[in-house]
């Protein structure tokens, strides 16, 4: 992972909400926008955004993924940063867009977009240098950093760094914290039993760490891990880190 040089805090940013947030977790998207606005940044939400195309890309349907990605490329004409509240969609746009458009007339545009992609927690830490004042009750929280955020984007530290600013929150570390929760997009559908074994271990680890709550910066992991906790009727609940941060600091 090359060292990324971060720009000074801009006046405006684009926000790419991701399809999963759009349809299933819209509050996380809105909370992300509010966190940015509170830093004095104007957030532009291009209305025509849909999906980054990752699921098709990882399934091998690159023609279809490219068509969908191409539709997103035109949504960010000005040179502002593009904030994505998801490590996997952010990773897709930062790492795989240039690959997907390599050798096509849109390669330069894809590279330009890729260089402007920031995952939300990354942007809050490294560009906004946010300072939070925690207004919530004491709570033990586990963070699950998605594999894309951790490995593809190199962002293992930004989520925990934000949580560490919350004075009343005790961040507990689950065993094998770096291990995948078993979501993996279509993997969970194509290999449900293996995926289930993985999420079972993940929920056990979070529970065993004494967490009362868990947060993640990826809604795929959230759907998977929270879905498992709910299915087992466990008390532990999860939410997107943007919602958690907003809820405790507003």
């Amino acid at each position: 992972m090359s060292v990324k040089l971060y720009p000074p805090k801009p006046e405006k940013v684009y926000f790419f909400g991701t399809c999963l947030i759009d349809m299933f977790y819209p509050q996380a998207g809105l909370d992300g926008i509010r966190l940015l606005e509170r830093e004095g940044i104007e957030v532009v939400f291009p209305d025509d955004q849909t999906c980054c195309g990752q699921a098709a890309y990882t399934s091998g349907y690159h023609d279809e993924a490219r068509a969908v990605a191409a539709a997103q490329l035109d949504l960010f004409p000005d040179s502002w940063p593009i904030i994505v509240p998801s490590g996997s969609c952010g990773g897709m746009m930062r790492t795989h867009y240039p690959q997907l458009f390599a050798g096509t007339p849109r390669e330069a545009q894809a590279r330009d977009i890729a260089e402007r992609i920031y995952e939300l927690t990354e942007f809050l830490v490294h560009v906004c240098h946010v300072k939070f004042a925690d207004k919530g009750e004491p709570q033990k929280v586990a963070m699950h950093t998605s594999c894309s955020a951790r490995r593809e984007m190199g962002l293992a530290e930004t989520g925990p760094a934000l949580l560490a600013q919350l004075g009343q929150v005790e961040l507990v570390e689950q065993v094998r914290a770096a291990e995948c929760c078993g979501f993996g997009g279509t993997f969970a559908v194509r290999h449900p039993e293996i995926s289930a074994a993985m999420v079972e271990d993940k929920t056990q680890a979070i529970e065993a760490a004494g967490a009362e709550h868990f947060v993640t910066s990826d809604c795929g992991c959230l759907m998977n891990i929270a879905g498992r906790f709910e299915h087992q009727k466990k008390a532990v609940r999860g939410e997107h880190i943007a919602s958690y941060l907003w809820r405790r600091t507003s």
Binding site: I21, M23, F24, Y25, P26, P192, A196, E230
Partner: peptide, 18 residues
């Protein structure tokens, strides 16, 4: 299908992010 053998089904939100 297999998803809900181990997890609850995700429900679309009432209102989208848009």
């Amino acid at each position: 299908g297999p998803w809900t053998e181990y997890r609850t089904a995700p429900k679309p939100a009432k209102v989208s992010l848009h």
